[in-house]
Simulated assay, not measured.
Amino acid sequence: MLLMSSLIFIFLVVLVPHVVLARGIRRSEEILVFDQNYKVTWGDNHVMSLNQGKEIQLTMDNSSGAGFASKMTYGSGFFHMRIKVPGTDSGGVVTAYYLISQGNRHDELDFEFLGNKEGKPYSLQTNVFADGEGNREQRIHLWFDPTTNFHDYKILWNPHQIVFYVDNIPIRVYKNNSNLGVSYPSKAMQIQASLWNGENWATDGGQTKINWSYAPFKANFQGFDISGCQSQSLIDPNCVSYNYWWNDKNYWCLDPAGQRQYENVKQNYVIYDYCSDRQRYPIAPLECIH
């Protein structure tokens, strides 16, 4: 009897956690399939499903680009996508991953990869729209080549802050300063991604046009599970609940290590910040001061 009890104890302590973990892995793998959470929204014949739906490739030629979007909208969350952007001569080509609300005075959170001539670096632009007001562009040069491998791009959005991450390194923070009269995104947003022609503005202020001899351009996406508060209404008070881990106090501000990483990005990789552009803003916008 003692031996049997010992064996049962060993099974519970050692084997059961592995069974639970295996279930979690299987569930996660199922969620990663594109069709479960996303749908193609335009350019159907320029979209290819790879690896049994765990990877999507968008292509662009001189006839069309392509895009996809989440089936649901979300009122808060920690959103991510693994992306590999077009290589070679990609000037004028824009790969976008963003959140956007519908209707007038929309909210929007943008990752925009701005292609460049061969041998010149990509620029990664982020932007924040709140209550229809945008023009909050920041651009960085990445510390790696985003055309050669997949990298993680994430957006934390809760009632206290929005943080843009690249490979878990914070590259931008937008705090909730609504108490000072600064607009802050609060509308339910859909996740979208696209590959499109931005030659009128994206590279060298629109001076560099797309070299179509390099078409079709290809952008690849992975990681289709979503950590977000699903919302059917434009403003959903349930999405600010502390029951969602991304709303926990630990995510109200960067921790010390994250703050050091963020300061390093600002010092060494930022190439444009609207907060410092005195030609556009002789007086710095209020959110830039606080």
Rank of each mutant, 00 (worst) to 15 (best):
S5Q: 11
I8R: 14
F9E: 13
F11R: 09
L12E: 12
V13A: 11
V16R: 07
G24H: 00
I25V: 15
R26M: 13
F34N: 01
D35V: 05
Q36H: 11
K39H: 12
K39E: 08
K39N: 05
N45Q: 13
L58W: 04
L58A: 12
S63T: 11
G65H: 01
M72H: 15
F79T: 01
H80E: 03
V85A: 13
G87D: 15
G92W: 01
T95L: 08
A96F: 09
Y97T: 09
Q102E: 14
N104E: 06
D107R: 06
D107W: 10
F111R: 00
N116K: 10
K117A: 15
A130T: 00
R136V: 05
T147L: 05
N149S: 14
H151C: 10
D152M: 03
L156G: 04
L156I: 01
N158M: 12
H160E: 15
H160C: 07
V163A: 10
F164P: 15
D167L: 06
D167H: 00
L180S: 11
L180V: 04
G181E: 05
P185W: 01
S186R: 13
S186V: 06
W196E: 05
W196F: 02
W196R: 03
A202C: 12
I210D: 07
N211A: 04
S213T: 11
K218R: 14
A219T: 04
F221P: 00
I226K: 00
C229I: 01
D236G: 09
D236M: 06
P237N: 01
Q259N: 07
Q259A: 11
Q259L: 03
Q261S: 13
Y262M: 02
N264Y: 02
V270M: 02
I271C: 02
Y272C: 04
Y272R: 07
D273M: 14
A284K: 15
P285N: 04
